Structure formats: structure tokens, C-alpha cells
Computed example of a mutant assay.
Amino acid sequence: MKIKEIIVVEGKDDTQAIKKSVDADTIETNGSAISMETIEKIKLAQQVRGVIIFTDPDFPGEKIRKTIAEHVPGCMHAFIDKKFAKRKNGRGLGVEHASREAIREALKEAQTMTEMTDELISKEDLIDAGLIGGPKAKGRRERLGELLKIGYTNGKQLHKRLMMFQITKEDFIEALKCVLQEEKS
């Protein structure tokens, strides 16, 4: 599988995992303190070929994703679920631990975030659905993020990400039905 866009990853182990999975070029951030030199490389990559941000499903990975998105609008985002990004022994979490299949699937599902002015899903909808507050909220958000291919977020960021990925009310309701149905099983 050939990827036209340049994939932004955190480090050299991620680059190795990507190159074993797909034919692609990468830019490494070398951690969450991204230099302006790296930001400039990513800007150029976005202009020339497009960029897919593919960071670890953890706090530093989200910080990197947010920093790049602020400086380089229009990038695509690929997300990998935590369960597919864990080392076999359970220690370590990251793209470098994911299977080739999981990496290919995440890249195939990459989406572009855009700023939206129309609110399709309100914060009240999220509260009513039990996605903010309550004992099951975190698990529900995790599963919803998997189903909608937008990654895991905390309660505060979920609304923003739903808007940025332009998730329709219909798609949201369908995914939520799946989440609630799975809870009953």
C-alpha cells in the first residue's frame, strides 16, 4: 500500500513500524516539544504532498497532534485504538507496537479535521447520552471514538472533535446505539 501523504510520527521506532506496514515517507517530531524547524518541515510537506498526523494514543501523542493542527491546518489525522497499540507484554503504548494490519487500517481511515460553525451535536446531547459525567462515560467515549474513527478524547474534547470531523447527528446516533447495545451484551 503506497501512501502519497507524508506521515508525521513521534520517533524512529514509529517510522520503522510504518515502513514495515506501508510504502510511505515520515517526519519524526522526536517528542512532544516540537521545534519550529520541524513545524516548518510539516508545513512544506502539507503544501507539497499533504500530511497525515499519526501519533500514539496517549496524552503526549494528543499534545503533538494538537500542536501540529494549530500550526498546520488541513492535515489528515489517523488514530489507532489503545488496544491495538499495546506491546504484547502489556507495557508500552504506541504506534510502534501496533500490527501491520492495524497501522494500514488506521491510515486508510485517516480524516481531515475542519472548523465547523454549525453545531450538529450539542454538549447536551453528549450529557444525555452518558458520554460526559457518570461511571460509564469514559468507556463509552472510548468505544464511540473507535466506531467513528476519531480516536479517544476526554469529555471536554469530544464535542470539539465531533464538530471538527463533521460527524453527522445520524452517524453519532448509530454509533451511540452500538455502544449502548454492546453494554447490554
Rank of each mutant, 00 (worst) to 15 (best):
A129P: 01
Q47W: 00
Q16P: 00
D23R: 07
D128F: 00
H77N: 10
G145C: 10
T38R: 13
I7D: 06
K12E: 13
E10T: 07
G151D: 12
A17C: 01
K63Y: 07
I150S: 10
M36T: 08
G11Q: 09
E182T: 08
K177W: 00
T55E: 01
K20V: 05
T15Y: 03
A17T: 00
L44Y: 06
T112Q: 14
A98S: 09
G94Q: 03
E182G: 02
L107Y: 01
K123E: 12
R100Y: 01
A110M: 07
T15N: 03
I150H: 12
K86H: 08
L126A: 05
V22K: 03
E101M: 12
F84G: 03
H97M: 00
R49A: 13
P135N: 13
G11R: 08
I132K: 05
L107E: 03
F172Y: 15
F54S: 03
N154S: 11
E146F: 10
D23N: 13
K86P: 02
M36C: 03
K88L: 14
I42M: 07
R65D: 06
V179S: 13
S32Q: 15
L144A: 07
V48L: 13
D125P: 04
I7F: 03
G130N: 05
M36V: 09
P135L: 11
P60C: 08
L147W: 11
A106T: 02
K41C: 06
V95Q: 03
S122H: 01
E37I: 11
A129I: 07
P60A: 11
T15L: 07
I68E: 12
V9T: 04
F172R: 10
R91W: 06
V179M: 14
K43H: 07
M116V: 04
D171K: 14
M164R: 14
S99E: 02
I132L: 02
R87A: 14
D118H: 12
V179A: 14
S122R: 05
I103Q: 01
Q47I: 01
A129W: 04
K63I: 13
V95C: 05
D13G: 02
R161F: 15
K169P: 03
S21P: 08
S122T: 15
K4S: 09
E37C: 05
E70K: 15
E109K: 14
A110Y: 02
S185C: 07
L107N: 02
A69Q: 12
T112G: 08
V72F: 08
G61C: 04
T38A: 15
